[in-house]
Design a protein around this nucleic acid. Sequence first.
DNA 1: CGTGCCATTGAGGGTTCTCAAGACCCGTGG
DNA 2: CCACGGGTCTTGAGAACCCTCAATGGCACG
Lengths: 246, 246
Amino acid sequence: MEKPATIALTAVNLRTACTQCNLKELCLPVGLDDVDLERIDGLITARKKVKRQQHLYRAGEPFEAIYAIRTGFFKTDILTEDGRDQVTGFQMAGEILGLDGISTDRHVCNAVALEDSDVCMIPFERLEELSRRIEPLQRQFHKFMSREIVREQGIMMLLGSMRAEERLAAFLINLSQRMRLRGYSASEFHLRMTREEIGSYLGLKLETVSRAFSKFQDDGLISVHQKHIQILDAEGLRRLIGRANV
Amino acid sequence: MEKPATIALTAVNLRTACTQCNLKELCLPVGLDDVDLERIDGLITARKKVKRQQHLYRAGEPFEAIYAIRTGFFKTDILTEDGRDQVTGFQMAGEILGLDGISTDRHVCNAVALEDSDVCMIPFERLEELSRRIEPLQRQFHKFMSREIVREQGIMMLLGSMRAEERLAAFLINLSQRMRLRGYSASEFHLRMTREEIGSYLGLKLETVSRAFSKFQDDGLISVHQKHIQILDAEGLRRLIGRANV
DNA sequence: CGTGCCATTGAGGGTTCTCAAGACCCGTGG
DNA sequence: CCACGGGTCTTGAGAACCCTCAATGGCACG
């Protein structure tokens, strides 16, 4: 019996070691020396498991940390006092959650796990401190924030100038690319979110999303069975997006 | 004749002194000591005048600096290769331009002056360097980036869940608040942008914008004459936004 | 004082939403 | 094992909203 060894192994796994993380090329800057890498390993103070449908944080709560997703899938959404409710993003492994909280020291959106997930908690004070000492880390962090700005600009373009089918095509292409980046199949995957959540994200009603899925299937672009998606003609989807009516 | 004196004065004005800037409470963190303030005065290497309709930067150009607007008014927009064209924001004095360029080291949007403007150029390398040494500056910069993320989330909400009149009302209220913040009248102002640019920003066609303006006027909420706007019933406009159909 | 850009207004059509009914899926409990 | 129920998804019909196209009017600038 090797029980003790197994336990020790588990403990090591739970210890937060960015240098050991198989997602590190998504989170960490390249070209760090050993000293800096060791410092960065001290950046993550805690790992946190979040069960499906549970909140990682809620709008209004004090902002203290950002989170890097190790495994799992999240949505962020905003619920305004007048009853508007909108999904602002879907996040998967290797992506960062919570950057919007910096501006007011409070989270402005809710982060909800769409499947059982596992995140690294990065205390923000400590990140700022370390990024004052490690230039590549600072640079990387700024790029993350800027990338979030650019991502949102993309959604603004989508919401402001695309029709329903174009939006859904763009959504599928984007999801597919991100799956590929993380080593999953880009052509076949399982949607973690409902039609209503997709619709909320894309500024559409769930029926419209459903109809667009059916249309894509009739046109031979994809195959849909509930949440199971298979992309049959990625190029066709891309052509759909490219057709601006100008 | 006092020509030499005048020239000298001009030179002083063109010298970049954040500590002398009447917008400093918008740009600078509070509670800095004199040494830090002096350092920050060295942050701005150049002022730049941009004439109406001229570009401050273009999408694709190498990113080297961000810009703080001293006077004037800008729009940022994105033109995709498939012909989609969308205004992503309007910026006025005291606001920051160019944060989206950090992610790829190239500007992703165009910044165009909508009136003769005057900006402070902040070389990004130097800003990063200084913000490694001056903690409040680092904090302030991060807040600026985060605020941009939150601002864009607001637009996503607007584009994804509001109808035409709600969008325009939100736009007017937002503009009005920002005018007030900068010491201008919140109830009466001159629009620097065309109906088409407003429409592009709000995901609407220019005719729809025009009709909504007329409707607001008929309802006694505002008075419109071309680009001159007077807000007669801000509370009424706010009520319009608050009516989510849930 | 034209010329060109911008804004307004109207009529008709298209896309998406709303409302509604039914089908599918899956976990629960009989 | 099957029936049941709740959540989710699909599909249809009609309505609402916004867009498109088109004509006119106003303003600024040369």
